[in-house]
Computed example of a mutant assay.
Amino acid sequence: MVEHPSGFAAIVLVGGKARRFAGCAKSELVVGGKTILQRMLSASETAAARVVVGARPADAVPLPAGVLRVLEDPPGSGPARAARAGLAKVPDDCDRVAILGGDLPFLSPEALRLLHEHVDAAGPDTGAVFCDNAGRRQWLCGLWPTDRIRQNAAEIEPGAPARHLFTGIDVETVTWDDASPPPWFDCDTPEDLDQARTWAADLK
């Protein structure tokens, strides 16, 4: 098991309409025999606190023991407000928080360790996010100083974009150079899901 420093929390945002999947929650899609949410919670199991934010289907697999769940206020008010709701459940002694979209089937302990390494090197007030192969920052696949995120979240209005959470925070950009599927890969479309399932099958 990959070890992380103590005092880190993980917030997984599972809300959203998922219109491209006929309303099926992306976090509940199955990749490699498990739902994406199950895979993400397993990847972040060393976190001192794990918080799932957003509505889940009535027949969803129960969350593991110790994982907290909360809804954003008001419901459907966007990822920034969802992160704000999740932060309310993060203990004060968690000095870092991973804020993660709920559709990342290849998030891994190694990926979280790499984010930790970058923020350790950069300093306590710096965040780190993965970037994709085109160099775009994947804002909902990163690790942040909890106090700074709390300050920004306090000003978040319903519907505000996720990037408002990160205003004024220095950011380290992290690339994934391993041959395994990238942790920033998100299942936005049915084609993405097909690709994820192909990769997962190849890993067996």
Score class of each variant (00 low, 15 high):
173 T>D: 05
129 V>G: 10
134 A>E: 14
157 E>K: 13
102 G>Q: 03
109 P>M: 05
128 A>M: 02
118 H>D: 04
195 Q>Y: 11
195 Q>M: 11
187 C>K: 01
106 F>R: 02
164 H>K: 13
137 R>G: 13
135 G>F: 00
148 R>I: 00
147 D>I: 08
177 D>M: 12
178 D>A: 08
100 L>S: 05
99 I>H: 05
133 N>E: 15
191 E>A: 15
123 G>Y: 05
198 T>Y: 10
161 P>H: 03
201 A>T: 04
138 Q>F: 13
93 D>Y: 08
81 R>D: 11
108 S>M: 08
145 P>A: 09
83 A>C: 14
87 L>M: 09
113 R>S: 02
92 D>E: 15
100 L>T: 06
95 D>T: 15
139 W>Q: 07
168 G>K: 08
120 D>I: 10
83 A>G: 13
81 R>T: 15
120 D>N: 11
139 W>G: 08
121 A>G: 03
172 E>I: 07
160 A>V: 02
189 T>G: 04
193 L>R: 06
181 P>W: 09
129 V>F: 10
138 Q>A: 12
193 L>Q: 00
82 A>M: 10
194 D>Y: 11
114 L>K: 10
83 A>K: 13
81 R>V: 13
100 L>H: 07
198 T>M: 10
142 G>T: 08
160 A>E: 05
193 L>V: 04
148 R>K: 11
151 Q>M: 11
123 G>W: 01
114 L>V: 09
123 G>K: 04
124 P>N: 14
122 A>V: 00
76 G>C: 07
118 H>G: 04
174 V>W: 07
157 E>F: 09
196 A>Q: 02
159 G>R: 02
134 A>K: 11
161 P>D: 06
105 P>W: 01
116 H>G: 06
159 G>L: 04
87 L>E: 07
105 P>T: 06
190 P>Q: 06
115 L>V: 10
131 C>E: 14
160 A>G: 03
197 R>A: 05
181 P>I: 09
144 W>I: 07
133 N>M: 12
174 V>Q: 08
111 A>R: 10
147 D>R: 08
189 T>P: 07
163 R>N: 12
149 I>C: 08
86 G>W: 14
163 R>W: 12
102 G>Y: 03
82 A>V: 10
124 P>W: 13
77 S>W: 00
149 I>E: 10
178 D>N: 00
149 I>K: 10
190 P>G: 01
105 P>Q: 03
165 L>T: 03
119 V>A: 04
130 F>N: 04
73 D>N: 15
163 R>I: 13
78 G>W: 05
161 P>V: 02
108 S>E: 05
197 R>G: 02
182 P>E: 08
200 A>N: 09
172 E>D: 06
74 P>W: 15
112 L>K: 02
122 A>R: 03
172 E>F: 01
131 C>A: 13
165 L>I: 08
196 A>R: 03
73 D>R: 14
158 P>L: 08
75 P>K: 07
76 G>S: 11
96 R>Q: 12
178 D>C: 00
84 R>K: 15
72 E>S: 09
104 L>P: 00
95 D>I: 13
147 D>G: 05
116 H>P: 02
167 T>M: 09
145 P>L: 07
